[in-house]
Design a binder for these strands. Structure first.
Lengths: 224, 224
DNA sequence: GCGATTCCTTACACCAACTGTAAGTGTTAT
DNA sequence: ATAACACTTACAGTTGGTGTAAGGAATCGC
């Protein structure tokens, strides 16, 4: 069953929300502390996040924007702030739905399930900013264009996307691509990097892969 | 720019909605008569449909269900019926969002744009019921499983999906697959049909392609 | 029931795309 | 200027996809 994470600081409401979804059979988690919510959320790898706006530390808006630039699960905003401008702002940041408290549990469930269903169709997507990669087929989507990569090229891009925006060392890439034990010539990685760059160039993604001399490679995606 | 279709029988409200979207630069159409709305909607091949519930003839609910089983664009329900049960019913039918009249134009636009964005990510999907095909990569998604088809197999399934639920003749399939002019042995079609069936069987889609003796093939998809 | 038609399946060989190897060229830092 | 690092191109082996061919199974009409 799908995995849902609740990001809500009011402990009573949090428990209530957890219960609502647990009753429906979902696997639900929530975060107890708000020191580094981003990490906890990404680590739990949810299928859906239910996000409050008024949080200690980083606001829900900031969190939403941050997550949307990196993760590929839907985000449902649930907040007591019921102004139109809040809603417009949230949707503009990429939030997938916006509900105001108090919210009938049935409505929340229905909206959440709608999102899970929609995103279920496009499972196995990795994204960073506007760039999307289907890891089953290695189809890359950007703006209005797309291209299907070969196996090796796709795997490289996948690793870069998963660790975005960090630098990935050549060694790490070789490890993932050709298994760990033996020494692998790094030339083959460079060859495939050239091929990948050429493929991405076709849809206008020139210079998206940066070389960091002596350290490795990293993606440079312009934020939405 | 994206194409939006408005299905609304009140002529004044319809014009207002059209204007709202036109001002934003969208290509907007609406249907003047409600004799055969399904056909008109499908023919216009929109990127988004804005749908009223209370319509002459078929209700918006029925229309939503019918479209969702066949088309792959999002549907936004916009109605004066503001009960929770209406909303739950609409979402259950597969509607992508549910707004109540009167609705602030900015909210409508924001919600519509969110749907366009979400579905834009998964462009080039053909679907019938629960079955989805990505026509760029020929990835088939059904329930929780997926499989990537080869080129020929994918094209066959695409044709069957596009004409679903009609029967497609062997000749038509040959025409689409191997071009029109010359005579083509139908054996190669049968060979590929076997291969396609075997591929689909892997994800549990046994017997989804029916043979209609003397006429051709058709899909048999159980409705959601 | 029996032949004829239609449809299905398997085996095989050709071809194109992907991949890694090798060698040479370009770039950057000291 | 030189060494280290990074990039590019050409080539050949392998693999997966495709069509051909031939024979087997199911269905229809009599």
């Amino acid at each position: 069953m799908s995995k849902i994470i609740i990001i809500e600081d009011d402990i009573y409401l949090r428990e209530e929300l957890v219960n609502t979804f647990v009753k429906k059979g979902y696997s639900v988690s929530s975060i107890p502390s708000f020191d580094a919510p981003e990490k906890e959320i990404l680590n739990s790898a949810p299928d859906l996040a239910v996000l409050d706006i008024n949080l200690p530390g980083k606001s829900g808006f900031e969190l939403c924007k941050w997550l949307k630039a990196r993760a590929s699960f839907p985000i449902l905003i649930l907040t007591a702030r019921d102004t139109l401008s809040d809603e417009l702002y949230a949707l503009g940041l990429g939030a997938d739905d916006f509900l105001t408290k108090p919210c009938h549990p049935d409505r929340l469930i229905a909206r959440a399930e709608r999102l899970l269903q929609t995103y279920g169709k496009v499972r196995n997507l990795v994204q960073a900013g506007d760039l999307i990669l289907d890891i089953d087929t290695y189809k890359v989507i950007w703006k209005n264009a797309h291209v299907v990569l070969s196996d090796t090229e796709g795997k490289i891009l996948q690793v870069l996307l998963e660790r975005y925006p960090a630098i990935v060392s050549k060694q790490d890439l070789s490890l993932v691509l050709w298994g760990g034990d033996e020494y692998v010539d790094e030339n083959i990685l460079q060859v495939n990097m050239t091929r990948l760059r050429k493929s991405l160039d076709v849809i206008g993604l020139r210079d998206i892969i940066q070389t960091v001399r002596g350290q490795g490679y990293r993606l440079e995606v312009r934020e939405p």
